[in-house]
């Protein structure tokens, strides 16, 4: 008769906190790696804002200015946010919707992984893409659009882009739990493109009809864009704190929707 193997606690398991931290870091690392390796996603989410910025910010640039800054620098802010939104909406909105429909999310849920590790890995992935997009756009602007940007300004827009990943990721999560997975891609475009246009990311708001200027503040992209313009030394509307509240409010609403949708899903699981 064989003796049953006795499992002894391993030294590494003695500290649950360090194990939890390790799980979070592993989850984030592989989520970023997975997204980068998925070329259809990584190339399009970086390629779209780059292409738009090249077309509208650089090629059509006639050395005009908006307020105190050059158009190429002003639009750098807008397209950076456009890029962040795309990474979150396609990476999380569509990605999580697919994980959900395929049963992969349930498998993760049934494992001892802390659920927050999954969410945080997605947010960090979106933030990593945001930072990459801002950096590429800045390099393009500096080398091909005569954009003058101080290192302090650059650090500020990096920080804003990373911060922006949070509300956009929550929008992505809410979408992932509300939308039928098969149509997630189409609905992502229906949110992504109109929201970007209506909050003045493509064409500055002052050149758009009055009605659009009136409704723009309902979008998180509008508030983040104003913070971005201010950081670039361009003219922006409203106070910094009002934009922060706007973003916070939007984030909380999206988290609330996600939570409700998740509860509903568990009841119907």
């Amino acid at each position: 008769m064989s003796t049953p193997s006795v499992t002894l606690p391993v030294a590494s398991s003695a500290n649950p906190t360090s194990r939890a931290i390790r799980i979070f870091l592993t989850e984030i690392r592989y989520e970023v790696l997975r997204a980068l390796r998925t070329r259809a996603f990584s190339l399009s989410s970086i390629g779209f804002p780059v292409m738009f910025y090249c077309l509208f910010g650089l090629m059509m640039n006639r050395n005009e200015t908006i307020g105190a800054v050059a158009v190429a620098k002003y639009l750098l802010g807008g397209y950076a946010i456009f890029g962040s939104l795309g990474a979150a909406i396609f990476g999380i909105g569509v990605g999580v919707a697919l994980d959900r429909s395929a049963g992969w999310l349930e498998l993760k849920q049934a494992s001892p992984m802390p659920p927050l590790a999954y969410v945080l890995s997605k947010v960090c992935m979106a933030a990593a893409f945001s930072l990459t997009i801002v950096s590429i756009l800045t390099l393009l602007g500096v080398f091909f659009g005569h954009v003058q940007i101080t290192s302090f300004e650059f650090l500020r827009i990096l920080a804003i882009a990373a911060l922006g990943a949070a509300p956009f990721s929550c929008l992505g999560l809410a979408m992932a739990f509300l939308v039928p997975p098969a149509s997630a891609g189409g609905i992502a475009n229906l949110i992504y493109l109109p929201m970007s246009f209506l909050s003045g990311l493509w064409v500055p708001l002052q050149f758009l009809p009055h009605v659009i200027q009136q409704i723009a503040p309902i979008f998180p992209t509008f508030h983040l864009a104003q913070i971005m313009y201010a950081a670039l030394g361009a003219s922006s509307e409203g106070a910094f704190s009002s934009h922060l509240f706007g973003l916070l409010g939007f984030t909380l609403i999206m988290l609330g929707i996600t939570w409700l949708a998740f509860q509903r899903q568990e009841e119907n699981a």
Binding site: V10, R19, T26, G103, W104, A110, S111
Partner: peptide
């Protein structure tokens, strides 16, 4: 579980080790 699609751009080794990492032993 019956899973229709797992993250495709992760290697077998990576998938296994991610899950091994969730457990103490």
């Amino acid at each position: 579980l019956q899973v229709g699609r797992a993250p495709e751009m992760l290697r077998v080794r990576e998938h296994i080790n991610i899950f091994r990492g969730y457990y103490s032993n």
